[in-house]
Design a protein around this nucleic acid. Structure first.
Lengths: 340, 340
DNA sequence: TTGTAAGCGTTATCAT
DNA sequence: ATGATAACGCTTACAA
């Protein structure tokens, strides 16, 4: 307890009259320990407010108590919600959150990640879409011995390594809602190719039309890339059709806001001329006018669960965190029955 | 190089035919070193792709190579921009970013932070507003010996520990722009008490009115708390006045979006019945209809600079990062001259 | 059930 | 200018 002011394992050992190894066993909840000894050591520990030095543990264990959040390009609100969920799960534990952006598309991405993992010796990794959809990253983690959980819109891995939302069913439900309102000419602003979420959402859209015996016209599907601007141009293509769609499902809110812009630029009223549904329930959905009907997925809960899956291995009661999370349709003012 | 596969300082020392201390000197750029020796060691290092083990360094140096981002309640986009700026500065260095939310208002906040700092031995800390305005946190950092940089809307600390924006002048400029358009009855949706940014922005607003000899009426100032909902209710109070304001400056975009809602609910057209200016230039500003005129502050650059101020101490050329950053008015469609 | 000794991979001290 | 040796604070053999 000399230099830094912090008590060390030696202080505890001395005051408890045991060896430091015994203290170490108490810290690591070793099962083979006399109850008396354990209690005595624990008393000294709390008396000193002793906390094991993470740097020393990291060195000896060849493992840091850090959880990494690896993401690429995703929207701000999503990353923040994820961080919030993770931090909630990590609160009060010995774990800290390290943020690591990754450039998917970069040729050296995998090597960068490998160096990062080998150097920092993270305890575990949480992977956000779309890079969570990359199997070689998951494989790299296993290889290096780093726990990981992938977040995504479909079950890409076993339950221990995945938390997924049910995007397809959610979009199917949203589209069915439009159909139930009387819409028949429904456009889709799709997400970018190569994103699993884009694929799932599109499939949900098509399933709903199929089930209602509405033919799927290729011209009613316009590609976007999840950005506001791409929403504007995709909607432009749809709204120039004759006859126009009376409703548009947009694969995320950002693009839905773009759809609204495009509609306004053409002098269309929302929702009387055009109903719109988005996906994500980001703040913008509630802030645009009219407020946007959208699909909300419990992203913070998913992230929380992902973090718990990783840290649970240390807990006594390794709780079974859920792996599938259901989204819900948030009904606001951007949808009405089509004008007669 | 046995167990983990990674070469260690010992491998380097052996292959270079020097002691590990010498290798250590090379790593740490010790000045007293024979050039020949240095070169020889460096060759071995790059030959092996040797990278010093951060955990061991952390233990020996009693200092981690982690930069902490400490924030409280701020909006998602701001945090993301900050993270992006920091990560940009940290890219390619040995530093990683750790995110640490803090509950300002919690009685134990300061103690929590102290524990965190004492345990994790962070290299440095970046503090976001509003908790960056808390002097006792800065003091705690100095005390513990943790570098820190505060971000904020006014120069609260010396240049080494501060990056600031010029909110007051920026708002003054924005308000002058409204006045130049012919507005005289201008409302303010203010930020929460206790936020330095709220104070600065309000002062800028008042300065502009003063300079134009427009009397400042207390009733034309409505308090908000930076949220969308508070923008709605604050705007409600302003728009119920007789005569109504013809323009409103809102101290952030989120509340400005609320102002738009409130105006719409009253059947007012924007901008012909009401001009609006916001602050932050978050994505919502460009996504609402009409697009919002707003003040943009270079938050990512500020964060980048903050990170560089912290890491620069290790660099050869300790560059002088700027401490004051200027905001600019982004003119969009939410402002016109008042109707005759 | 507990303790001893030897790491983990680096830096600090104090020689030479 | 370089090196031997002892930290740094903890864990993992292996004994006892």
């Amino acid at each position: 307890m000399k230099k830094t002011g912090q008590p060390t394992i030696n202080d505890v050992a001395r005051l408890a009259g045991v060896s430091k190894k015994t203290v170490s066993r108490v810290i690591n909840r070793s099962p083979l320990l006399n109850d008396d000894t354990r209690r005595r050591v624990e008393d000294v520990i709390s008396g000193l407010s002793y906390i094991p030095n993470p740097q020393a543990r990291a060195l000896a264990l060849r493992r840091n108590f850090l959880i990494g959040l690896v993401h690429d390009n995703p929207n701000a609100q999503m990353v923040m919600n994820v961080q919030q969920g993770i931090l909630e799960a990590l609160h009060g534990t010995e774990f800290e959150l390290v943020v690591r952006p990754l450039d998917r598309g970069s040729a050296t991405m995998l090597e960068d990640l490998r160096h990062f993992l080998e150097r920092q010796r993270l305890f575990g990794l949480i992977l956000l879409p779309p890079i969570s959809e990359n199997d070689s990253i998951a494989q790299l983690c296993s290889e290096i011995g780093c726990r990981y959980v992938r977040m995504g819109s479909a079950q890409l891995d076993d339950d221990d390594h995945m938390v997924a939302s049910n995007d397809r069913e959610a979009v199917r439900g949203a589209t069915e809602y439009l159909i139930a309102q009387g819409h028949r000419r429904i456009g889709l602003v799709a997400g970018p190719h190569g994103f699993r979420s884009a694929r799932e959402r599109r499939l949900g859209f098509e399933e709903a039309l199929d089930a209602a015996n509405i033919p799927i016209s290729r011209s009613m599907i316009a590609d976007g890339n999840y950005t506001f601007e791409s929403g504007i141009s995709a909607a432009g293509r749809l709204l120039d059709l004759m006859p126009r769609p009376t409703a548009i499902f947009s694969c995320n809110d950002e693009m839905a806001a773009g759809v609204m812009h495009a509609a306004r630029q053409r002098g269309l009223d929302i929702p009387s001329d055009l109903s719109i549904i988005g996906f994500d329930d980001t703040p913008v959905a509630a802030h645009v006018w009219p407020p946007l009907t959208t699909v909300r997925w419990p992203i913070a809960s998913m992230a929380r669960s992902a973090a718990l899956k990783i840290t649970a291995s240390l807990e006594e009661n390794a709780v079974d965190e859920p792996s599938l999370f259901l989204s819900t349709l948030i009904r606001r003012a951007s949808v009405t029955p089509p004008a007669a």
